[in-house]
Design a protein around this nucleic acid. Structure first.
Lengths: 222, 222
DNA sequence: GGTTTGAAATGATCGGTGGTCAGTTATATA
DNA sequence: TATATAACTGACCACCGATCATTTCAAACC
């Protein structure tokens, strides 16, 4: 027997509906990876997913709620990959490099994270927003635990580190989100500027500074 | 005599055109401060500015180019305010607090900065983009000079600090850009989360860590 | 001072957007 | 096999950013 529940035409059971929803999300992510956030249109997604636009709105209240769901899934996915790389003991530099490379390797995570607060979270219901924040809290804790081990930090410090890495990641990878200017049509001064914002060293160097800063602040016993 | 050049109906001279352009920018900024980036529409702006939509496109090639111009003006304006507060000698903490409060006080600057690379810079011509990058370079240098004095850093270090402050500012003020959730309808765990991302201490504390990190790395003479 | 002229301003128009909803139809159940 | 239900459809809405042939005004010229 085929264990996959066929969705011949209509998803009736909760299981089928969940499956169809995930199918739409998968199509959305593939499409998103191709065209990016701004060029992403619900009509096009519907076409690619083989449904009609109205159907999308049975599964997602708004375009932004769809993206919020994609964000959550990418956050969880990245968290699993990243923590999978964490070992019992790491230098802050290796930790930072691992965090950076895994985050970038997931094509969806950063572009969605960057747009989270000022685009996606608007046009989403408050209850849905609360759900999403809880997913975030859970992920921070899930990542903080092995971080604490790897970096030999207290739990509180590890949580601070994980949150801070997010803050830095967003700031440091901004340049990557600009229009692609591979061409050498850029004058030298502008090329130098862009080079000085190269995200990998920018992130790693300052992640280390921050982690070591936190480590150095360990309060002596009263 | 009225020194203001009246624009009765049509701006003919270069001076009048510059004036009308600035008038449109002023109207745009006022409107932007009211409704934010996403709700801002060119048709509404036209109405408020007393022109027709097509006219806007005589002065700005695209919506994004208009915003890029607003961004540049806000960057320059903030830079002047901030450097005006810098004194001959400051602790890194006072420096960071001053930078933070002046940046936030300018209602336009941060919301535009946050959207710069991933929204505004797309849909702008390459030459215009190059112009804009040069404005940025100039501003970094203009701010780095008094920074170098205030924090007793080398020129190179001061430039790194200024660029880093931008990176951190964007990451640290993200939460402020989310939907306003003043209401106490939020459960405690989510309220705690939001509190833990409170941007002022987040920025100041880590700005200090980074500045002191840079200062500590002063290479000893070879 | 009347006429020419060219550019500033207009407004109708375009293709496309996110979102809605009355109506259609497949399917689980009785 | 008939019926009730809800998944799905597709036409429709208001609005968006952007375009461009046409109109209109003010400066330049004779």
């Amino acid at each position: 027997m085929n264990s996959v529940v066929e969705i011949s035409q209509r998803a009736r059971s909760a299981e089928q509906k969940a499956q169809r929803r995930q199918g739409l999300l998968d199509a959305a992510e593939t499409y998103f990876l191709e065209v990016g956030y701004e060029a992403f249109s619900m009509a096009q997604l519907a076409k690619r997913a083989g449904v009609v636009k109205g159907t999308l709105y049975l599964y997602f209240k708004t375009r932004e709620e769809l993206f919020l769901t994609l964000y959550e899934q990418s956050l969880i996915r990245w968290g699993e990959v990243f923590t999978g790389y964490l070992s019992g003991s790491m230098t802050s530099k290796v930790y930072a490099k691992t965090l950076y490379s895994t985050a970038l390797a997931d094509g969806s995570f950063l572009p969605l994270l960057i747009r989270l607060e000022h685009v996606i979270e608007h046009n989403v219901s408050i209850p849905r927003l609360i759900m999403s924040k809880r997913v975030f809290i859970d992920q921070v804790e899930a990542i903080a635990h092995p971080t604490s081990t790897s970096l030999k930090l207290s739990k509180v410090q590890a949580i601070e580190v994980v949150k801070l890495m997010g803050v830095l990641l967003i700031g440091a990878t901004r340049t990557d989100q600009g229009p692609s200017l591979d061409n050498e049509e850029l004058p030298e001064d502008v090329q130098n500027l862009i080079a000085s914002f190269s995200s990998e060293p920018l992130f790693v160097k300052n992640a280390v500074r921050l982690i070591e800063g936190i480590r150095a602040e360990t309060t002596p016993d009263i």
